[in-house]
Design a protein around this nucleic acid. Structure first.
Lengths: 182, 182
DNA sequence: ATAGATAGTGATTGGCCACTAACTTGGAAG
DNA sequence: CTTCCAAGTTAGTGGCCAATCACTATCTAT
């Protein structure tokens, strides 16, 4: 039950990832996060300065986690082989829809923040994303075009998952032959 | 000032597209939409049964509009030429960020609705999307893989726009050589 | 044992927001 | 001119939710 603040923060981040992924920033109540953690709602504000900080922590964790998946899958590989391994790993993430959706929520939230005049959030999100892009690019051999294709197919997968197309649907077929990059 | 209910509904849909694109479903108040239309907030509820109906109308309009752009750009063309024309047209849409973002908002909202147990919304959204996919696929020659690539790059563009990468940023470079499909 | 610190709760509040009800205005046909 | 309908408004309500405050419980070190 009782745990250190650091441990609690960790479980809050994980719960926040799930809740924000499903409800978006505005559509998620801190109450829902607290319920998932198994803690009272006001206590969240001892662990984080505010709701936004929880979202940012969840978003950052999400990007880190994505790289971890890519990194593990392609350990020791380079070029085309690495690309195929990472594509396969990303397709595996389809099972864990929440992580893919947290990405999407990050994107739309950044846009909302920018539309509301808060550009700093956009900058840090861009840095996060670009650093993931760069690490992937280097891993698959350094070609810009290949990296672009890789990410493009990832973003399409996100969309198909969001819309709820079942993996056996024909639209998913396009991935069978090319595994993310061609 | 005074206009027919049908005309008003039309301007509400346009305003809703902009506001929902920027704020998302939960992050957009009907007050904001009403302000943009130039009408009192309660009057929206005479024109639409509720906020959700406004969102659905905006989403449907957004998909229609996307096809209209593709259709105009590729009129009379087929195959690779059509694909290039449509890719170019989509890149043109980057200027009008709101339309691209409304797409993203549709995707995450569908996921949220599904997470909340409302599957019907997901079904109609999938039908909408799939019908766009099909029309594009046929226009570019019928190949499934080509269509998948086309949409994948579209989704990546959405992401880059959301995050606010300026068009001159190097990450956009990957599009210079292949114009959306390779 | 007990003092101090750290983990955690219950009650509350002020603001926002979707939606309703009751009323007012404008304009076109007879 | 007046009557009637559709366009539009003002005022209000109930519910939700982030954040605060004052409080309690549990551990640890001396």
């Amino acid at each position: 039950m009782r745990m250190s603040a650091e441990e609690r923060r960790e479980s809050v981040v994980r719960a926040a990832m799930i809740e924000f992924a499903r409800g978006g920033y505005r559509g998620t109540s801190t109450e829902a996060i607290a319920r998932r953690v198994g803690v009272s709602q006001p206590y969240l504000f001892r662990l984080f300065p505010g709701k936004q900080a929880m979202f940012e922590a969840a978003a950052e964790r999400c990007v880190e986690e994505t790289w971890r998946v890519f990194d593990e899958a392609s350990a020791g590989l380079t070029g085309e082989a690495a690309a195929e391994a990472m594509s396969g790993a990303y397709l595996g993430l389809v099972e864990d829809r929440d992580q893919l959706m947290m990405q999407m929520q990050l994107y739309v939230s950044v846009f909302a923040a920018r539309a509301a005049g808060e550009e700093e959030i956009g900058e840090s999100a861009r840095r996060l994303w670009e650093s993931l892009f760069e690490r992937v690019r280097i891993r698959i051999g350094g070609d810009m075009k290949d990296a672009t294709h890789f990410f493009a197919h990832g973003m399409l997968i996100n969309t198909l998952v969001a819309l709820g197309f079942p993996p056996e649907h024909r639209i998913w077929g396009g991935f069978d032959e090319c595994d993310g990059i061609d």
